[in-house]
Design a protein around this nucleic acid. Structure first.
Lengths: 194, 194
DNA sequence: AAACTTTTTGAACGATCGCTCAATTTTAAC
DNA sequence: GTTAAAATTGAGCGATCGTTCAAAAAGTTT
């Protein structure tokens, strides 16, 4: 945290994000966090202010990484829709085994928190809206390229994608390997409303 | 809890269910529960064994009430599909304002818990599967009546419904009144795959 | 109404919670 | 090399956690 603070801070926030993502806000204790980020309580509180403060940074970190991953998918293909599709597959299928938690951290947070943590709840909601906006931009591109019909707006289609992701991730966690996720995601982009 | 224990026990479990539903497993303390169910710790532990034991009963209670509500919808109309649709509207729209929490308690639990509470997690997953089975039965009826095409199995369609409900409830909590939930639920039953 | 069983009570246990702060160590400036 | 500022440490604070259990109360049996 002393010099080159930026790099260390990012690393610390990343580790905190993974723990919060895995266990959720309430089930994660400051002592858990102390262990994984290897900082003593005084330093944590000097840097992040509170358990809520660190969680808020974790939400921002998670969101930025998500958007970066989406942009990475976009860069790897000329088709906006197949970029979106491979992003969804990453979220729904790969996250099940490779991520700290199969669920979306933002959806988990929206589900977990109440008005007792209004600021964090708002942050999570806003992040979800921000991601939906990114989807809409991608879909607008796809429509401009003639990849997608224009009888629904990008916003409406982005909303549809968001709902499918949330639903599929709960479903994937519930049913584990039994769910034919791959097929379901294919259908998502070939059937109505696409 | 002394004589006629059944009635009181149901009432107690109902109140506990509402609190757990509102706040989630980890954020609900035994002292919170003591207050809302008006029992002293000794009695609670004599009756339910532990915080986990009471939560397990709450999950069962929640699931039974959900299935009972679905059957009630079925009894009020001759169309299995419109029964299903009004059930979905109840879950997604009415729950937002009238229930302890807009989210499904089972989805919330699947999202919140890890292997640290394996038994409770399994209970929640099984309840979601049980409800999906109920959906499938209703859809099979609809297919028999010619209300629904037969090119997808009841199981597949029930799965689709489950995913839409999970997704829509996260979406509803995120966007509040902004989301055109009514229209989206209509589409759900008129567009693919119905 | 005495004897016995069952249920309820609530003080209190040890553990852990989020967090503070005086003391110490590390870094930067001169 | 000295000094001032900044960052880090970790013991420990008061509060709360899930839970226990001896004592009291309520119910049942005879």
């Amino acid at each position: 945290m002393r010099k080159n603070a930026k790099f260390d801070r990012d690393q610390v926030v990343n580790k905190a994000t993974d723990l919060y993502w895995e266990k959720g806000f309430h089930a994660t204790s400051m002592r858990n966090l102390q262990d994984v980020i290897d900082m003593r309580p005084g330093s944590i509180y000097a840097t992040f202010g509170s358990k809520e403060g660190l969680f808020k940074e974790a939400l921002k970190c998670y969101t930025q990484q998500g958007i970066a991953a989406l942009h990475a998918c976009r860069r790897e293909t000329s088709s906006p829709i197949s970029a979106l599709q491979s992003f969804v597959k990453m979220l729904v299928i790969d996250s099940q085994t490779k991520a700290p938690n199969g669920m979306c951290m933002l959806a988990k947070t929206v589900a977990e928190l109440t008005e007792d943590n209004a600021e964090l709840l708002e942050e999570a909601k806003n992040s979800l809206k921000q991601i939906e906006t990114e989807f809409a931009l991608l879909i607008a591109d796809a429509q401009a390229l003639g990849e997608v019909k224009q009888n629904q707006t990008p916003r409406e289609l982005a909303r549809y994608i968001q709902i499918q992701i949330s639903g599929l991730r709960v479903y994937a966690k519930t049913y584990g390997q039994e769910a034919p996720l791959d097929q379901m995601i294919e259908d998502m982009f070939t059937q109505y409303p696409f």
